[in-house]
């Protein structure tokens, strides 16, 4: 290897690496995701708010002004759209990136090779997606004020609304973890079409669930969509006069769904990540 003899061999800067735990690695990975999200923030916002914005505008404003929907409908709709923004943004923030990172870009490998348990990489994905989803849901409030003039609000409900929104965001992210790891990359387009639309319309975001009692089969279908409990929970706290599923049931069901979905998603993630 004569060529090497001519190379100037310089030692790389080295130093003592501080004691470093998996938690710190997880935070470093989260910092990377925050950095990338922050840099693309305006694009991210446009991506996530357009759908709920149009739903709110057409159903909450246009249809009521034209007289096709009752005047109070916007109040019923608004909490459901906050839930919708939280769950769908969460789902989209994990499912698509995971599919891409596991197949086409392999980008996730550098994190799977970082010194932290593989499961923590999956959890970090859920956490960052839930953060994005929470922002998307929070933005619905100023948009609601702007479009509708006022939004339903009771001061006492603030804490419950925040917690339920966080749960909805986490739920969507966990759903995305399941989708992104169990669905084959070449089927993700089909799956999105097959999953997103039903999810969008069976999550009780456009109607109060108890009012479905005379379309019993549809009511049962909606009860199986965990988003229903986020919509109903928020509706119960923001517009208590509208018939709704009891708030404590919503919390229990939503948290339960989060746990189950996260567990399933973790299994899928570990399967994809480990040979």
């Amino acid at each position: 290897m004569t060529a090497v003899d001519d190379l100037e061999v310089r030692a790389l800067p080295s130093g003592r690496v501080r004691p470093w735990g998996p938690w710190q690695t997880a935070l470093a990975i989260l910092r990377r995701d925050l950095f990338v999200t922050g840099r693309e923030f305006p694009i991210f916002l446009a991506q996530v708010i357009l759908q709920p914005l149009f739903l709110l505008f057409v159903f909450g404003k246009v249809l009521t002004q034209l007289g096709y929907a009752r005047p109070g409908y916007a109040e019923v709709l608004f909490p459901g759209l906050v839930a919708l923004a939280a769950v769908l943004t969460g789902l989209q923030s994990t499912a698509l990136p995971l599919v891409i990172e596991f197949s086409y870009s392999n980008e996730i490998e550098d994190r799977l090779l970082a010194p932290l348990p593989i499961g923590a990489v999956a959890l970090e994905k859920v956490v960052i997606a839930a953060m994005r989803a929470t922002i998307a849901a929070a933005v619905m409030f100023p948009i609601g004020v702007w479009l509708l003039g006022s939004i339903p609000w009771t001061a006492g409900a603030a804490l419950g609304v925040v917690v339920m929104t966080l749960i909805g965001a986490f739920m969507g992210a966990a759903m995305g973890l399941v989708l992104g790891t169990f669905v084959a990359p070449n089927r993700i387009n089909v799956t999105f079409a097959l999953v997103l639309t039903p999810l969008l319309f069976t999550g009780s975001s456009q109607y109060p669930w108890p009012s479905l009692s005379h379309i019993r089969w549809f009511q049962v279908v909606c009860a199986l969509n965990p988003m229903t409990y986020v919509s109903e929970g928020l509706r119960g706290m923001l517009v208590p006069d509208v018939p709704h599923i009891q708030t404590w049931i919503c919390f229990v069901a939503a948290v339960g769904a989060c746990l189950v979905l996260t567990a399933i998603g973790m299994v899928g993630f570990l399967r994809r990540a480990m040979g």
Binding site: G15, V17, P19, W20, Q24, T25, P115
Partner: peptide
């Protein structure tokens, strides 16, 4: 990558 592995910022 270095931050994932706990390499201090300056280094």
């Amino acid at each position: 990558h270095a931050s994932y592995h706990g390499v201090p910022r300056g280094l």
